[in-house]
Amino acid sequence: MKKNLKIATTIFIVVFIIDQIVKYGFANLGWDVNGPYMSLKLAYNYGVAFSMFSFLAEYLKYIQLFMVFAGTVYLFMNKDVFKEYYIPIALLYAGGLSNILDRFTYEGVVDYFYWHYGFEFAIFNIADVMINIAVAIIIYKQIKQSREEKKEKAKNN
């Protein structure tokens, strides 16, 4: 368990710091770059994914902090969940807390990846990518576990 916690902490720190450095560059140093397929362009998201719930902008940071707190309490009460999912949990916490820090620092989440070739896609950031990777890992592990349980059940019948 201690090894998993050390790995998770390292992943969290590295992802969080990289994301915050890049966001600082876009928010304060004018790192915008226009490209033919994708541009790096500063934008602030006052809502959540695809700017949903932007009408809650001033409250979202507190709602999200409460959700992180509730998730942390859940993990303390269910250490086996952390043991199984420590890598995606570290990615979720790093991405989520980095975006929450943006809400306190910049009053909105700093986004900058803007895909515009063939179709326009929502502007996003490294933290968003890490959150999506974490969710994909969790889904993959759940599907894999379900298949293994079905095989074991069929084998025993």
Rank of each mutant, 00 (worst) to 15 (best):
P36M: 13
V129A: 15
K79Q: 08
E148N: 15
S98P: 00
Q20M: 13
E84M: 10
I123A: 01
E152N: 13
N132I: 11
M52H: 07
A122D: 02
F124C: 02
V15H: 10
Y140T: 14
A43M: 12
F82D: 01
L97H: 02
A70D: 05
K155R: 13
Y62A: 04
M130S: 14
P88V: 10
K144M: 11
A136P: 10
M38Y: 06
G108N: 04
A43F: 09
Y117F: 15
E148C: 05
Y85I: 06
I87Y: 02
P88T: 12
F26L: 09
M77F: 10
F66K: 04
A43T: 15
M1E: 14
L75Y: 00
R103L: 00
F26E: 04
K3Y: 10
G35W: 06
V14Y: 03
P88W: 07
T72R: 03
K41Y: 09
Y37N: 09
V33N: 09
Q20D: 06
L40R: 03
E149Q: 10
I126H: 04
A134Q: 09
T9M: 12
I21T: 02
V129C: 12
I18S: 03
S39A: 08
A57G: 07
L75H: 00
F82R: 00
E148Y: 11
I137V: 14
I13T: 12
S54F: 04
K2M: 09
I17C: 08
S54I: 06
L75M: 06
Y24S: 00
Y117V: 12
N125C: 03
F121H: 12
V48R: 02
K151Q: 13
T105N: 05
L40I: 11
G71W: 01
I139S: 08
Y117I: 12
Y74L: 00
